[in-house]
Design a protein around this nucleic acid. Structure first.
Lengths: 228, 228
DNA sequence: CGTCATTTTGAAGACTGTCAACGCGCGTGG
DNA sequence: CCACGCGCGTTGACAGTCTTCAAAATGACG
């Protein structure tokens, strides 16, 4: 959780000393850059598990991660994908309520959660940044609830592709760093429905499918009317 | 909105001064108690709307509110119900991304958002409390995503009833402060499915339905196996 | 007691899930 | 170099759950 933070411009000297706190810089990312330990996770490997002590927080450097929760019978819901620059691993208690795994080979920066919280104790702006981050994530998650509760397969797929295109900030080509199963678990669908929906969008010339992991958003009109 | 506000005089000594923070009191709720303006909303009345400036924050005193979002074609998703003591209205930007309405006649305390944020600027513990609050809400919302994405109607209904029973902290009797339509929009179902599911649970002796707004949780075993 | 909103129930249909088979790409090993 | 196996993705047929449309029942309130 807690990903997709607002992209602030980074001040090299992060203002975590109580004395000088006039600039609204992103202290969190600065702290990660300066103090984060680099770690590599191969795809499908677990970064942390449900109910494990929430000892560390993370920032994606490359690759992608999924934040998910499992039901006892194997049903899974992915609440968010972490892409490069996203921060995740903040939970409210002392235990993770979700698990995190790499969906493809990924490099992340790791920090002790207590370090961040110690900084936040002394730096009001960092504390506020953490709050804004959580609030932003909350809003994003609530939007996703609307998707899961009230839209059909095509609308979910289109929203997902749009979101990925925006986050990739590559105009129309999306390289998916996750499997169909991951997409299905994110959208509350089955892998078959995901596949069929993509095929249908391709037949409608709304998208192109050069390969299974690459999607080209073709007709914005077709996508728009598909959303309706 | 925000008329007829009876302003309370601010008590000079509420414990948000950094000096005395040994008690695990809720600074936020203290601030609401001391400085909140009491307002009454009749059922179905809007407290704030989507895209309105997020100028105020609220705490429920009595009654209930729904936090919801509308799609252009009328589909609605309720992301949360606010029950007495719940705080709502914090959004990440300057505009509300959701709307809030009273589901039954409700009394709320209102405060300027800027007031809270000004306090948080100076009180690190309040800032942390706001962060914890947002993070807690985030976790709750993510759990709800699992419900919306991966469970059937009966499981959603049972989870909802359990949650309401817990929040009412009345052992087994739940008085619902919302309509079937509100429940449906919260659970991502139709009003008919909600009604049918409740009837089925009653037939299975898992619940009793003395009236449409009152539900008795009877057989914990029946509810449990219903969850499976 | 009548009216209106809300809730419940019924029947039919749509969308997605389930089960199954097939195709494709890729790495390994013969 | 090519065949094989394996993971992953696609497609098809059918079933099931939930929605839709419709109407009856219930309850609140003047």
């Amino acid at each position: 959780m807690l990903m997709q933070m607002a992209r602030h411009s980074a001040d090299p000297r992060f203002s975590s000393a109580p004395g000088r706190a006039d600039k609204p810089v992103s202290g969190l990312k600065e702290i990660f850059r300066l103090m984060g330990a680099r770690m590599k996770f191969e795809r499908h490997n677990e970064i942390y598990g449900e109910n494990e002590p929430a000892e560390y927080v993370y920032q994606v450097v490359s690759g992608a991660v999924r934040i998910s929760k499992l039901l006892s019978d194997g049903r899974r819901q992915i609440s968010a994908f972490g892409l490069p620059a996203d921060v995740f691993g903040f939970d409210c208690g002392n235990e993770h309520r979700f698990s995190a795994e790499a969906t493809v080979d990924a490099v992340v920066l790791v920090m002790k959660r207590s370090t961040i919280e110690a900084f936040a104790e002394r730096d009001i702006h960092l504390a506020q940044e953490l709050w804004k981050l959580a609030t932003y994530e909350l809003g994003r998650t609530q939007e996703h609830m609307l998707l899961l509760g009230r839209t059909n397969a095509r609308e979910r797929m289109v929203a997902f592709l749009r979101g990925m295109a925006r986050r990739n900030h590559s105009a129309n080509v999306v390289d998916l760093p996750m499997s169909r199963q991951d997409i299905a678990d994110y959208l509350g669908l089955t892998i078959e429905t995901v596949s069929r929906t993509l095929s249908a969008l391709a037949r409608a010339a709304a998208i192109g499918l050069p390969s299974s992991r690459r999607i080209v958003l073709r007709s914005h009109e077709a996508l728009l009317e598909a959303t309706t």
